[in-house]
């Protein structure tokens, strides 16, 4: 498979998931327990992403500047600091730690 074919095929496959979810009959998804499952899945997968993006590197599970940045972000979210400032602060913390260490 050429790289271009792979790019287009993978894009079509990802889009098919998105469209499929919107095409499933409404009576099925209006079931409260199905909606509850969809909400649980969202929280679980996003939390999974937080774990992967914070603690996993090419070398395996690591505790590095990203963990400190996430801890700072959690404190700032707790203090109700606006989203964009928290994200910038997290990037700054990781960047500064890497410069100093």
């Amino acid at each position: 498979m050429t790289l271009w074919a792979g790019v287009l095929l993978a894009s079509a496959l990802v889009f098919s998931w998105k469209l499929l979810g919107h095409l499933i009959p409404e009576r099925f998804v209006q079931n409260p327990s199905i909606r509850s499952l969809a909400a649980l899945l969202t929280v679980a997968m996003l939390a999974g992403l937080v774990g992967i993006q914070t603690f996993v590197s090419a070398e395996g599970i690591t505790l590095d500047a990203r963990a400190a940045a996430l801890a700072v972000a959690a404190v700032l979210f707790y203090l109700r600091v606006p989203f964009i400032f928290v994200v910038i602060a997290a990037a700054a913390v990781a960047s500064l730690l890497r410069m100093c260490l």
Binding site: M1, L3, G6, A10, W17, G21, H22, I24, V29, T42
Partner: peptide
């Protein structure tokens, strides 16, 4: 290329779950 396509596809599944949640809202 093939493993790259497969991993992108698998990781895209969650968008389908989001769509299921969003469909009745939207």
């Amino acid at each position: 290329v093939v493993p790259a396509v497969l991993s992108a596809w698998l990781l895209g599944v969650r968008n389908g779950f989001y769509a299921i949640r969003l469909a009745p809202v939207m």
